[in-house]
Design a protein around this nucleic acid. Structure first.
Lengths: 248, 248
DNA sequence: AGACCTCCTTGACCCAGATCAATCTGCCAC
DNA sequence: GTGGCAGATTGATCTGGGTCAAGGAGGTCT
């Protein structure tokens, strides 16, 4: 349910070194040539803002490596993260001019971008691209709604476990492992960023991580490196009834 | 930002009596003929379930009148509403087999449906339909993310005001009024349903509504009929920095 | 080395909203 | 009428997570 599995496909994409088939799995040679022509890469440092909410966005694209966040803020400073962009995730709003939310790199970040205008033209003449984008957007919508349950109804401990489970699963998928048994990964977010994602304060995040550590659900090395000895235990802690279709 | 304004267009749609142009504003005569052929109506009573999460969904369509909700539940009973479907809102996941969430009518409900298979076929041969659906899905995604801020960061009072503002605005738009100054509408949800939408308990909902009434933000007649003497005041209470592009 | 960051942890206390419980208000059926 | 019931309100109390505050751990400067 969470995130698009298709987008994590290991199938190589000729128009883009990132191993996903978000755009071009069904493209013919001509279409690929266009994509290749309008493609470019951008790198960002940790903390750098990719685009500000409301700014004109000149591209659509995917995360090749690193992590970015989608964030919105109230004018009194309260902040809510509304999306977490991991490698292979798509960024952009075909047919829309402005960015809806701030996009910020939380680690070093490389993006594979397509210039927006010609991409949209390609989309208009290439039905399967619009269809693929629709599927991807439906996946994002599912993820957003899944997260609404986390925000609205889960306890702090369950929220933390849910976030860890998402990152762990995505990380495992990226490295072509099935996420059962032991998992090891690095948290790409500060405690404060996690708090903004989960609708908590950073102190509560810290306390609940300590609690999960104390209870043996996770092992921490340093502050970011996480070992999950038993993934299904983590899912239980997250209150997930489903396994997201990965375990079974 | 919230909800698709295009979908509330007053332009009549020949394939469907509901005044939206979700599907067919750019359709030619042949396409309209197909749509007309695969179209049918369904009515539901308050409380009736339209589809269960996971069930095969045989149609896509729009709400003609009445209100429905999208709901997901944890197995311990905690429930989160992830979408509120008002007249002209679109339901369905083109290209997906199952429903992702329970769809429940909270009032009497009439839906305009298109049989899913032929609709998808039409979509595959008609680029502008896929593009239109993409735009609608992007709107839903924006609404979901907006709601994440409500769930994650707003106080109970702000949450209630946010919900009232959404319903008031949609209701006004439906009746072709601009939502400034005085607004009158009926709440289509029980206190419990509101609580499930807002991540609160029904008692808190009731208390906060009483508080907004006491403070003159709203006037209640009975338990469902709401008068908003000053819409901008309501938006302030909701903590909205923006007016959703409606006031200005 | 020390000074100075940013990020994280932990403790003490507090409060918004949950929980538990009683009552009220229609409204329908008989 | 009266009983029953679903929805709503209101009160009393409790508690999970927020707030405020004090260090700690690591890093990068000079």
């Amino acid at each position: 349910m969470l995130h698009t599995d298709l987008a994590h496909s290991t199938q190589d994409c000729k128009a883009c070194p990132i191993r996903h088939r978000a755009v071009c799995a069904r493209c013919d040679a001509d279409e690929l040539a266009v994509l290749e022509e309008i493609k470019y890469y951008r790198s960002f440092e940790a903390g750098q803002t990719v685009v500000w909410a409301g700014d004109r966005m000149e591209f659509v694209g995917s995360v090749v490596s690193g992590v970015a966040t989608l964030t919105q803020a109230m004018e009194d400073g309260r902040t809510q993260m509304v999306g977490l962009l991991l490698p292979s995730d798509f960024v952009g709003r075909p047919g829309r001019d402005g960015a809806a939310y701030d996009v910020v790199a939380t680690t070093g970040l490389v993006m594979c971008c397509f210039r927006k205008k010609p991409f949209e033209q390609l989309m208009e003449t290439t039905p399967h691209i619009a269809q693929r984008l629709l599927q991807m957007t439906l996946d994002e919508l599912d993820a957003a709604r899944e997260w609404m349950l986390v925000l609205g109804r889960k306890t702090a401990r369950e929220k933390i476990a849910s976030l860890l489970a998402i990152v762990a699963r995505r990380d495992a998928t990226l490295n072509l492992m099935t996420p059962n048994g032991k998992l090891v990964f690095d948290l790409p977010l500060t405690r404060e960023a996690m708090a903004d994602y989960l609708g908590l304060t950073l102190e509560t995040v810290s306390r609940q991580i300590s609690a999960l550590k104390r209870d043996g659900v996770i092992v921490l090395e340093g502050t970011r490196h996480v070992v999950v000895p038993d993934f299904s235990r983590l899912l239980e802690e997250a209150g997930d009834d489903s396994d997201g279709g990965i375990l079974s």
